[in-house]
Computed example of a mutant assay.
Amino acid sequence: MTTHDVDEIVPEIDRVILLEQGRILVDGPKDEGLTRENLSRLYQVDLRVDKNRGWYHLR
């Protein structure tokens, strides 16, 4: 699955790869990759990451 929208990542996905300008920023377990620090760096905005029943949401 490829997406630019974290809200679309279904709970069954257990590994993520985050790319920043064509280079791998993160490659590993979803819980370790989809953190506030990683996603804020990737999107260049201070974000809050919420998790609800396996779904991730950015604020």
Rank of each mutant, 00 (worst) to 15 (best):
S40F: 05
N38Y: 08
R36V: 12
I17V: 15
S40W: 06
N52E: 14
V49Y: 07
L18Y: 01
L34T: 11
R36K: 13
G33A: 02
L34Y: 05
L25P: 05
R41F: 14
R59G: 15
L39V: 04
N38P: 02
R59Y: 12
V26H: 03
R23P: 01
V49N: 02
V45M: 13
P29I: 09
G54H: 11
K30S: 08
E32N: 03
V10Y: 03
R48Y: 09
E12C: 03
R15M: 09
K30R: 11
G54L: 11
Q21A: 14
W55F: 12
L25H: 13
D46W: 00
V16K: 02
K30Q: 01
H4Y: 07
R36A: 13
D46H: 14
Q44K: 14
I17S: 08
P29Q: 10
H57V: 05
G28T: 06
L34C: 12
H4M: 03
D50P: 06
L58N: 12
H57Q: 07
K51E: 15
P29W: 00
G22I: 15
P11V: 05
V49A: 04
D14H: 07
L34D: 05
E20M: 13
V49R: 00
G33Q: 04
E37Q: 14
P11E: 05
H4T: 12
D27P: 03
V45F: 09
S40T: 13
L39T: 01
G22H: 11
D50R: 12
P11K: 01
G28W: 03
Y43C: 03
R23C: 10
L18V: 13
K30T: 10
D14Y: 00
L47P: 13
D14E: 14
L34M: 07
V26S: 01
R59M: 07
E8L: 12
G33K: 00
V10E: 12
Y43H: 09
H57S: 13
V16S: 08
Q44P: 05
L25W: 07
R59E: 14
L25F: 08
D7E: 15
D31Y: 08
R53V: 11
M1G: 15
D50Q: 10
R53G: 06
G33D: 05
R41S: 14
Y43W: 07
V6A: 06
N38Q: 11
N52D: 14
D31F: 03
H4I: 01
N38G: 10
H4G: 08
I9A: 09
D50K: 12
V26T: 07
V45W: 08
P11C: 07
R15Q: 15
V6S: 03
G28K: 01
Q21P: 00
L19E: 11
L58W: 01
D27F: 00
V45S: 11
I17A: 09
R59A: 13
L18P: 11
Y43I: 12
E8N: 06
D46P: 06
G54V: 12
M1P: 08
I24A: 07
G33L: 02
T2Q: 08
E8F: 01
D50C: 04
T2Y: 07
D7Q: 15
I13A: 14
L19A: 05
V26A: 04
K30A: 07
M1I: 11
H4W: 01
S40N: 05
G54D: 11
R23A: 14
R53W: 06
D46L: 01
D31E: 15
